[in-house]
Computed example of a mutant assay.
Amino acid sequence: MDAINPSVELTEPERIDRLRLIRSDNVGPRTFRSLVDHFGTARLALERLPDLARRGGAARSGRICSADEAKAELAASRKFGIAWLAPGEDGYPARLAMIDDAPPLLAVRGDTKTLTRPMIAIVGSRNASGAGLKFAGQLARELGDAGFVVISGLARGVDQAAHRASIENGTIAVLAGGHDCIYPPEHGDLLAAILGHAGAAISEMPLGHEPRARDFPRRNRLISGASLGVVVVEAAHRSGSLITARMAAEQGREVFAVPGSPLDPRAAGANDLII
């Protein structure tokens, strides 16, 4: 049941075991998948963690998330309207489940049907130009009208323009922190509007997790992984949007870039994608 396959429906104990394993020290999505592939279930993997740590030369095994901790997290999430879904369960984005480091449990809030539709990511500069914001909004609206769901990171600039323009057709916000730690904080109203119009928000982080700098690249792999392709609208050199584009290419997704003025440093990274 723990293997990634279609038409999965976890039991409550299996969901708790999965949450315990991914919340334990030194277990990320790739390690989780390797452990479950090797031992067959999350519960058996949990039982073997101390022995694996000793074999690895550790003086002591890392912290293993307890069943009580996992149950408390699930209970708190449900009060917040969050469902924790495993790859293969209804509502878990099918394309996201295919990537090597797919979250073994994804915290979903909103309309899960939106997460089953084909998605296109629109990302770009937080300090976008007026033209960039206008184009991002126009493209998002037209993609929505054509039947695509626009997915982005709820950030300032291009992300928020894409979300706002596609609210009526359903849009998906990917969060770097927990569902109760919206970043930037002023986009709480935008997220409420998304959830109120058949949209959704997803995260792999627990409630109370404030996003840190290293969490945004982790979030970006979810944006690209869930989508058919990524459109970059204005991105400077060393931009996080270029990280998303690189991840998309590594995941076998299409990458598109909107050309900008060669004199505008906000468009330099996106222009380089075209060359």
Rank of each mutant, 00 (worst) to 15 (best):
D264L: 04
I82A: 03
R141D: 10
L190I: 15
L222I: 15
S152Y: 01
I202A: 07
R156V: 02
D272V: 05
L105E: 10
D101T: 13
P259Y: 01
V150P: 03
A67Q: 15
F135E: 04
A245H: 02
R156T: 01
D68H: 13
I274D: 10
W84P: 08
V149L: 04
L21Q: 08
L273Y: 06
E250K: 11
S224D: 07
V150C: 04
D90L: 10
T244Q: 02
R126G: 03
E69S: 07
S166A: 15
R18V: 15
L35G: 06
R63K: 14
M247V: 14
P50L: 04
L195N: 00
A268H: 04
G28D: 10
D51E: 15
R18F: 12
R95F: 09
S166P: 05
R33A: 12
G229K: 06
G132A: 02
F135S: 09
A59N: 13
A213T: 08
N127C: 06
A226P: 04
V258A: 02
S77W: 08
T244D: 05
F39W: 14
R218D: 11
H163C: 13
G88M: 11
I82Q: 06
I167V: 14
G157M: 09
L222F: 08
E210Y: 14
R212T: 14
A83Y: 08
L143I: 11
N220T: 11
E9P: 10
L222H: 05
I120K: 04
R246A: 13
Q160S: 15
L115C: 05
A45H: 12
I172W: 00
L52M: 13
A249T: 12
L133E: 10
S239E: 03
S129W: 03
G56N: 12
H38T: 15
G240Q: 03
G81T: 00
A45S: 15
V258P: 00
I22R: 07
A249K: 12
E250G: 12
R212Q: 15
L105C: 11
V174A: 01
R214F: 15
P118K: 01
N169A: 15
H163S: 11
I16D: 06
L52D: 03
D180R: 00
R55T: 11
A58E: 11
R63C: 03
F32R: 01
D101W: 05
N127M: 09
G147M: 09
P211K: 01
A155W: 00
A53L: 09
V255H: 01
T171I: 05
E14D: 14
P6A: 11
A107V: 06
A76W: 06
E14M: 12
V36W: 04
A201K: 07
D2S: 13
A162R: 03
S203D: 02
D17P: 10
G188H: 11
E254L: 11
A75M: 14
D37E: 15
L207V: 01
I194T: 02
T11E: 14
M247W: 10
G91C: 04
E12A: 14
A236V: 10
D180H: 03
A248L: 12
D90V: 08
T41S: 13
